[in-house]
Simulated assay, not measured.
Amino acid sequence: MEKIMIVEDDIKIADYLCSYIEKYGYEVNIATNFENIMATFRDVQPNLLLLDINLPSYDGYYWCRQVRKESICPVIFISARTGEMDQVMALENGGDDFIMKPFHPDIVMAKIRSQLHRAYGEYASKIEERKLILEGLTLYPERLELRFGNEVTQLTKKETDVIESLLERYPRVAGRQDLLEKLWDDQVYVDENTLNVNMTRVRKKFQEIGIEDAVETVRGAGYRIRTTWKKGEV
């Protein structure tokens, strides 16, 4: 069952959307912790996000940017803002579509179905999915998923980018500076400890699928994938 997450601080609108969408067989989750939308997002792992712009603490543009750091799931903005720039900003901040309030529920459902089809259904199937394979290890960048044998683990967007870089560089070393520039090119300065933290997380992801010591630290240079797992740890 596909999951829809609603981020809307008007509880009447949220409940109305929830009950209407559920009639079509979807599982619906309404976010209530507006201080940390991402905690709910990670817990729910929705297939699609309905997102208001005017929210407590941080607006919908902010939360959409946070989602895009970890997920490529469709995001549809629903807002009372009617200006053209609001719609432009919604798209530029990572949104896929925009619905103006007041809305007709059938329009909402049509847009939900359309985005789900594009992301996961008949339209998406016409495009060959990208995957990187090395010695039985398979990375699915669009799914944010890493597989080894029968084991699978879900990744964040940054974890996916790190592993993708390592696999693309193999057997060469992925330089620290190259990784920093690829992953955080929107920031003026990043503490290198941030990369260390992310590499620790990546190593844990490999451990989750049964691979120990998958990433080698090359002192003074960067990181490199090790393929000793081909002998079989799982």
Rank of each mutant, 00 (worst) to 15 (best):
V88W: 00
M89H: 10
A90C: 12
A90E: 04
E92T: 11
G94S: 08
G95F: 02
D96E: 14
I99A: 07
K101Q: 12
H104Y: 06
I107W: 00
V108E: 00
M109T: 09
M109A: 03
A110I: 11
K111R: 15
I112F: 04
R113N: 15
Q115T: 10
L116T: 07
L116Y: 05
L116R: 03
E122S: 13
A124G: 03
E128H: 04
E128C: 08
E129T: 01
R130E: 14
K131M: 15
L132T: 02
L132S: 07
E135N: 10
Y140T: 00
Y140K: 03
Y140F: 13
Y140G: 03
R147V: 14
G149R: 10
G149M: 07
E151C: 00
T153N: 12
T153H: 09
T153L: 02
L155Y: 03
T156D: 15
K158C: 01
T160Q: 10
D161S: 10
V162F: 13
V162G: 07
E164G: 13
S165T: 02
S165P: 02
E168M: 09
A174T: 12
R176C: 00
Q177F: 05
L179Q: 05
L179A: 06
L179K: 06
L180V: 07
L180R: 04
L180K: 09
K182M: 09
L183S: 01
L183T: 00
W184N: 03
W184A: 05
V188S: 09
Y189R: 11
V190F: 04
N193P: 03
L195G: 07
